[in-house]
Design a protein around this nucleic acid. Sequence first.
RNA 1: GCCAAUGUAGCUCAGUCGGUAGAGCACAUCCAUGGUAAGGAUGGGGUCGCCAGUUCGAUUCUGGCCAUUGGCUCCA
Length: 643
Amino acid sequence: MNKIKITFPDGNIREYEHGINAYDIAKSIAEGLAKRVLLAEVNNKVVDATKPIHEDASLKLLTWDDREGKAGFWHSSAHLMAEALEALYPGIKFGYGPSVENGFYYDVDPGDRKIGDEDLRKVEVTMAELASKNSSYIRKEVSKAEALKFFSEKGDEYKIETINELSDGEISFYQQGNFTDLCKGPHIPATGLIKAIKLTSIAGAYWKGNDKNKQLTRIYGISFPRQKDLDEYLRMLEDAKKRDHRKIGKEMGIFTFDDDVGPGLPLWMPNGAVIIEQLEALAKKTEEKAGYSRVKTPHIAKESLYLKSAHLPYYEDSMYPPMDIEGVKYYLKAMNCPHHHKIFDAVPRSYKDLPLRLAEYGMCYRYEQSGELFGLMRVRSLNMNDAHIYCTEEQFGEEFKAVNDMYLHYFKIFNVEKYVMRFSTHDPQKLGQKYLDMPDLWKKTEDMVRRVMTEANIPFVEVKDEAAFYGPKIDVQIWSIIGREFTLATNQVDFGQPRRFNLHFKNKNNEDEMPLVIHRAPLGTHERFIGFLIEHYAGNFPVWLAPRQVTILPIADRHTGYAMKIFAELKDQEIRVELDTTSEKIGKKIRTAEMMKIPYMLIIGDKEQEEEKVAVRRHGEGDKGQVPVREFINKVVSESSIP
RNA sequence: GCCAAUGUAGCUCAGUCGGUAGAGCACAUCCAUGGUAAGGAUGGGGUCGCCAGUUCGAUUCUGGCCAUUGGCUCCA
């Protein structure tokens, strides 16, 4: 029998019997290793560890430490859950059951039965029992006819629909225990590897993600090869909850919601208003330097404006219903663009005016579906860091790049590192429906954007069919602490609205020419950006942003006079300072200030009073010793300046 | 909007198998004047999310609505 050569990642080559599998290879190296093997990467293809290898190959053994290993583990867990569900709910039908970033889910149709949170515990127990049987996941190639026969007899129309979309020859089943599923795999060797299981939540999910289809029951779960991994994961979730902007926002008095005001309409409390004003100061300073002009526009406008902009036919569902004023419909604005276009159009423009950059922190109102609202991240009243740049085609590249540079400038200030730049392009199939039917301009602008990003060496991912109806865009995607994805900032090209508004300028030859428009919002909206910042900093804002910068903590009543004197001096320098005159012990005052995450605490006692000093304590860091009052003021003032 | 769950004091949460409720923190007053994360005592505070229904009686049971939470869909 001829042998085959297996090349390992470290370059080592070993010879094995023809038809050996990755699991047995691992076993030949060490029993302990074999126990950890989940999948194998054979010639750069991820397959079952139990799949026989018939030729010389490179091999990487995949374990829990590999991303693919985890994915296979969770996907196999989804099958295990399906087995348990079928045992508990005979006749239950199955949709899709993939792994996700943190765990897995399976979409099921339990018929007339309802599955609630309490039922999940039963399912968990059944899963654990089935896992302990250590059944192997067995792959079987089947013909399309066989596959259809199997699921027709079983009566699972979702699987039949899926099979009908597949071609003969690429269909496989996986079986473990009494459960057989349509699946291309790969899977882990056996159920016994799954040692810890937690079914986390239950949700409705439309079949194939289309809200016209039937809604299935989606059960989410996560599993681990060791109990302690699950414990650690649950602990991590608890920690994440502590950073949640909704929790910290309440504790720090940043924002609130009220039933009488309405869902999705945040009320900014004094501490939140400070953050807003600091962000606006930053934006104004940055935009001033970058040659922007500021404008102000009303919160409502007549129907005709949004008919002209084409927003109304596209987005009426997302706008608050109109109010009727003397027979004319007025809408709350859902976007600032049309107003800015009107300002561009208010006077004749020359090429000498371009690029014209109109900026506004504009309040918009969007009637988001009730189920989509989420703390500050998804609201119905939003204050956008908006601006529209009107430029010629020649100027476009430079302007677009300048906007991206502005993003990066901000991200550096805020130390934002975990984000993805998403380049959203159109789908040529949908021209005239979802997208303006101007193929040449789509190609031209998308090429321009791609070139700008590539030349600036900014990493991005390109996603088809995500563009705005009027042009391609770059979105900055971020994640909330509980893992939801949001667009934090956006930079969009618009070749549609200039046409609809008939915007033009005189070029050098005294001819009318149409500008391109860039929509941009590097700081997104106050709502989402502050929600993001709260979680990003866990409430520990840098001094310039902190709603309250300094709190003065006198030790005894006899120090109040000196404390008030310092208080006045700090106030005089526009430092956001408080004075704690409650009759509590110093330990209690410190605890309160620490919990409010105030950057600086000044402890004032006999020693400080005599020496005209303050004892400085930094939030989260502890006692910093005594410094002269003047020195402290200078330090805070310099840390307070807008970056 | 759809699926699942939740809603008790300002906050975090107990509790009532139907007889209108309790703790800690916070707040107020008093005592204590204390040196780097909770000093002590006393006290005020709730139409038990809202509206109906069943009942002698509903915070508790039933229904509807509202809001929030986890998802789905959506996201200019």
